[in-house]
Design a protein around this nucleic acid. Structure first.
Length: 482
RNA sequence: GGCCCGUUGGUCAAGCGGCUAAGACACCGCCCUUUCACGGCGGAGACAUGAGUUCGAUUCUCGUACGGGUCACCA
């Protein structure tokens, strides 16, 4: 059996959609699980859409998630070049060969005629299709026009009758009538191939055994089958995967702001979590586990787990998975990730390691950190109703009493550590004979000004220090007395 | 519109002729707890629809509805 060779063939648009990334991921998994090769090929035959630096975005993203290719534009390989515009001679050669084989023909129709034709067809309610005007030009006529330098394209010669069946791993056999297929353009006037042609030629020449692609290609797949047949080549195994949707009606698009890998990373998601999540969109593992590293994904991946229906991208689920990854991080690693975010709203000289350790269990996305730590530098003004809490059986009046008792206790405390603070405050609690929350709730509010905080009264007091704690308590007492 | 494809809880999904129809996220309740989280326990919630095949259909076939894809010198 031949070696499994798969390829990811993005167009350089300057942006890697999560759908594309998922395709790359599945493609990679198929190759790696079989011990085969994963190839990167750049499909840049549309020079009008060329975007400067777009290739780098692709390289950078793929490397960031660990989808390292065995052959590709920047690292070479035995089947190069891996950038289609550098292969233009190859396509021309094969297109001409296909003409000789009877699977294609020269067409000299200009765009004006074509658009006119289309307009007429649409007006009369007919499916727009090329009318095969040049299909039966005599060899002499062709030679003549070619010699005269008439611009031309090469079109696929679809059989007039019969039907074509192609196979997809997920969808099984799909048969269509040849009469519904258009004599599509293979080689453009500019000498570059269309995707429809380049993809077939390259996959064959590069020895690709399995093709994973979006299911927008399902409709044109029979035409590729016909191309393979005309060349006498063996077709690869096809796996068409459904789209990732924003909702039931719409695909996830650039406008949604979280359609690209970089959008997600900028929003504070971890690379590993993103990969893990998108793998779960349209694919399901055998067991009940759903957290997988890339190597585990490779191990676990199986085509039979792929779904035939579109999957809606669910930010909530991504958050949850991201949260799992964050909690699984070592405290040091998390602190490293969290620090820049903490610094956005917390400039003071605090022990960031301690803040990070408080943050880790309650952070799902890094970008939500700043709002959680915005009270360390300066206590925000807050509403006194925060002191009213039924569960803690306390209110402003009770809080005022508690704070007045806690203040001297803390003022006299010399060991300002977590243990020291605990001893002091719990001593007060015991002395007063009340529930923990009766004291700790008001103190926390008094020094944070917030309903929810990372960490409790003790942790916060320790981090902001004695002076600041006492200052805030006094201020809060004044507010309660006013 | 023609052709192709799909349809299990709000979402991702398991299922592949016989099940009390998994699991995860979200949601609700309880426990833990100095708040919120984390963690633990529990709950509610689904086979689009109509026929047919069959002893028996979520599972097979056909129709209907709904949704998607495609009909470019874009990929």
């Amino acid at each position: 059996m031949n070696e499994v060779r798969t390829r990811f063939a993005p167009s350089p648009t300057g942006y890697l959609h999560v759908g594309g990334l998922r395709t790359a991921l599945f493609t990679y998994c198929i190759a790696k699980k079989a011990g085969g090769k994963f190839i990167l090929r750049i499909e840049d035959t549309d020079q009008e859409r060329y975007v400067e630096g777009a290739n780098e975005v692709i390289y950078r993203t793929l490397r960031a998630v660990g989808l390292n290719w065995d052959e590709g534009p920047d690292i070479g390989g035995d089947y190069g070049p891996y950038i289609q515009t550098e292969r233009r001679g190859i396509y021309k050669e094969y297109a001409e060969k296909l003409v000789e084989l009877g699977g294609a023909y020269y067409c000299f129709c200009d765009k004006d005629r074509l658009s006119e034709l289309k307009a007429v067809q649409e007006a009369s309610g007919v499916n727009p299709m090329y009318d095969r005007h040049c299909r039966n030009l005599s060899p002499e006529e062709v030679k003549e026009k070619l010699a005269a330098g008439t611009p031309y394209v090469i079109r696929q010669k679809i059989p007039l009758e019969g039907s074509t069946t192609f196979s997809d791993v997920l969808y099984g056999d799909i048969t269509v009538e040849n009469s519904t297929l258009d004599d599509q353009i293979l080689l453009k006037t500019d000498g570059l191939p269309t995707y429809n042609f380049a993809n077939v030629v390259d996959d064959h020449l590069m020895g690709i055994t399995h093709v994973v692609r979006g299911n927008e290609y399902l409709a044109s797949a029979p035409k590729y089958t016909l191309l393979y047949k005309a060349f006498g080549w063996e077709e690869p195994v096809y796996i068409h995967v459904e789209h990732i949707m924003r909702d039931k009606q719409h695909k996830l698009s650039k406008r949604d702001g979280d359609a690209s890998y970089e959008d997600l990373i900028n929003k504070g998601y971890l690379s590993e979590a993103v990969v893990n999540y998108i793998a779960l969109l349209g694919w399901s593992p055998k067991g009940e586990r759903e957290i997988f590293s890339l190597p585990e994904l490779v191990e676990e991946f199986d085509i039979s787990g792929l779904s035939k229906s579109p999957a809606i991208f669910d930010p909530m689920k991504l958050r949850a998975i991201n949260g799992e990854y964050i909690r699984a991080l070592s405290p040091e690693k998390f602190a490293e990730y969290a620090e820049p975010y903490i610094r956005k709203s917390c400039k003071g000289d605090f022990d960031l390691k301690k803040i990070a350790s408080l943050l880790q269990p309650r952070t799902e996305v890094l970008s939500e950190i700043p709002e959680q730590v915005d009270f360390f530098d300066e206590m925000p003004s807050y509403d006194l109703s925060l002191y009213d809490n039924k569960k803690m059986k306390t209110d402003r009046a009770a809080a005022l009493e508690v704070l007045k008792k806690a203040l001297p206790t803390l003022e006299n405390l010399s060991d300002w550590s977590l243990d020291g603070l605990r001893e002091a405050l719990f001593g007060l609690i015991a002395e007063m004979g009340v529930k923990n929350g009766f004291v700790l709730w008001p103190v926390r509010v008094a020094i944070s000004g917030k309903q929810f905080t990372p960490g409790g009264a003790l942790e916060i007091a320790e981090i902001i220090g004695k002076d600041e704690t006492l200052r805030r308590m006094k201020r809060s007492i004044e507010m309660l007395e006013a």
